[in-house]
């Protein structure tokens, strides 16, 4: 189990990260740091490089330079399938529930990479909607349930750092509430979470710090307790 009290160690350090998809240059020198047990959001307009940063961490990117260190280990240059095995779980924006797999198969698909992952009963406690749906085809679940399933399957693996890409996108407020409860519960359990969010009202209820991205790099960092003081600035950044 990750130690929730020890918030001083840096778990993820990104320095001067450049990234490309084929010809197009999407990341221009991203630098950020996530400490153990923290919940950190990446805010920014569409195309600012938030999702690309996550994909760069997971190695799903044509070419990347700079440095991404997870618990001291350099990820750039590492074989793509080894990165998650260090204990990084990825919940993609499109959720990625497999239609040819049942809910149970989806849930147990990602291999357990470390000890201390949640058990299936614990997961069902966190997401009661998934209980008793095991043999349903994965994509027959509602959008919110698919999001829960996408998060749930990572929790089983023992990953200690979770990358959540827009978990509230397109969901009803009631469901967003439920996801929020779950994410807070995960934080309490000591998971470190990086969250991409457009909905910063949601982000403000769970995050410790916010990184603001623009045009492929980080332009600002706002601790959550200073969010109110920086509201005007943030509005300019996000163009709302």
């Amino acid at each position: 189990m990750p130690d929730g009290m020890n918030t001083k160690t840096a778990m993820l350090e990104i320095a001067d990260l450049y990234g490309f998809y084929g010809e197009s240059h999407v990341l221009h020198g991203v630098s950020l740091e996530v400490r153990q047990g923290e919940v950190v959001t990446l805010l920014g307009r569409n195309g600012a490089g938030k999702t690309s940063t996550m994909r760069a961490i997971m190695g799903i990117m044509g070419k990347r330079t700079g440095s991404i260190r997870f618990q001291g280990t350099e990820l750039i240059g590492m074989a793509q399938h080894r990165i998650p095995r260090l204990g990084i779980g990825y919940v993609p924006e499109e959720r990625g529930i497999f239609s040819s797999l049942s809910v149970d198969e989806n849930l147990t698909l990602p291999p357990v990479v470390k000890e201390g992952g949640m058990t299936v009963p614990q997961i069902h406690e966190l997401f009661p909607n998934l209980r008793g749906r095991g043999s349903t085809q994965g994509t027959r679940l509602s959008g919110g349930e698919q999001q829960m399933l996408a998060i749930a399957r990572i929790l089983r693996t023992g990953a200690t750092l979770i990358l959540l890409d827009e978990p509230t996108e397109g969901l009803a407020p009631v469901i967003i509430e439920q996801i929020g409860v779950a994410v807070r519960a995960l934080k309490q359990r000591g998971f470190t979470i990086v969250l991409v969010e457009q909905n910063f009202r949601f982000a403000a209820t769970i995050a410790d710090r916010h990184y603001v991205m623009e045009e492929g790099h980080v332009v600002d960092m706002i601790p959550n307790d200073q969010l109110h003081a920086n509201m005007d600035k943030l509005h300019t950044y996000l163009g709302v």
Partner: peptide, 24 residues
Amino acid sequence: TKLGAYLRAATENPTLVQAFGINV
């Protein structure tokens, strides 16, 4: 089987299966 589930999943979305730590 579990192996078959990997196969079906990788047929659908190899990138994501790789991002779960499977050597696609």
